[in-house]
Design a protein around this nucleic acid. Sequence first.
DNA 1: TACCAGGTCCTCG
DNA 2: CGAGGACATGGT
Length: 234
Amino acid sequence: MPDTPYSFYRKLLSFFGPQGWWPTTPAGGAAPVYRPLRYSPATPEERFEICAGAILTQNTSWKNVEKAIACLNAAGALDIRAIRRMPRARLAGLIRSSGYYNQKAARLKNFVSYVHRARGGRLSSLFAGNTAAARSELLALPGIGPETADSMLLYAGGKRVFVVDAYTRRIAGRRFGAPDDYAELQRFFEERLPRSLKVFNEFHALLVALGKEYCRTKPRCEQCPVRRGCGGRA
DNA sequence: TACCAGGTCCTCG
DNA sequence: CGAGGACATGGT
């Protein structure tokens, strides 16, 4: 019997366990850590770190991003005002390990100026209001596309938004024959899942876990923990 | 050595 | 509108 998106989610959760997304740096800590079973960021600092991480991880492995975040943190620059005041070239140096550092430095600076100018320096004001409106404002910023915006809304804002990434596309295509287009694929999942922040939070993280280890470009179906119920389409 | 990684934007045809 | 390229580091 083929899985529904929700039964598929439950299998992934029981195999991999809670993923603790989005990782953030503990007070006094050196690098981000995963925090299982917390589905909304507690502090404004965590919210900002998540937004910054969402930009830094664009088409880049999280390992490289962790280093960049650790450097920012060590420089006292995991902070809206600090980044707003920092020269772009210095910021680029701090985030060097995350790749595309010139672009990403510009994107980060654009993001913090927006938060300063339009949100009085408070990210919470962005997430406190209408979600669709917040999403539009984010998408209007240079270097923030649908996945980055939705990651911010879900993991920094605690909004019930389904995040689509490359793994989601690959897995949903193979398993469900789901559409490839961002908005259509997002709706595919949102229409078929319970209205639960936990499910949206964990599901995306679990798809990344499956995509990294098993449902890769060259899939490892023999070892896949959820091969039963998989259509195995292109 | 190539290829890939928790994308986005720009340019062509 | 869709394909193709630029952006860049670090791991396998």
